[in-house]
């Protein structure tokens, strides 16, 4: 059982979390070429070592970024996604 650290709730067992994919996999909108869409949909970096990933803490529903080592399984504490820390008044 892994322990992940939600940036809002602290360390919790892995069963409370849901994997949301690799971080930085930006969605291309509109009628992008098939290859670009396939890259977004199917192709992953799958790095050996430090991987930045999106996770959602199901009990508080917050989405955050976590760096996890795919070799040692060590998990860094989660970071809020940028929008959580941006002042909403400046939009």
């Amino acid at each position: 059982m892994h322990i992940y650290t939600c940036p809002f709730c602290g360390p919790r067992p892995e069963t409370e979390f849901h994997f949301g994919g690799e971080a930085g996999n930006d969605r291309p909108d509109g009628d992008v070429p098939a290859q670009a869409w396939a890259d977004y949909l199917h192709y992953r970096q799958n790095p050996k070592g430090a991987a930045r990933e999106i996770w959602i803490h199901l009990t508080c529903h917050e989405v955050f970024v976590m760096t996890r080592d795919t070799v040692t399984m060590a998990a860094q504490p989660g970071e809020p996604i940028p929008s959580d820390t941006t002042d909403r008044g400046d939009a």
Binding site: H18, G20, R27, I54, I56, L58, H61, E62, V63, I81, S83, D84, T86, R88, A91
Partner: peptide
């Protein structure tokens, strides 16, 4: 469905 809604809200509609 709830997880899907939250994920897209926070990822695409954060503000």
């Amino acid at each position: 469905v709830l997880a899907l809604l939250e994920e897209w809200r926070q990822d695409r509609f954060p503000r």
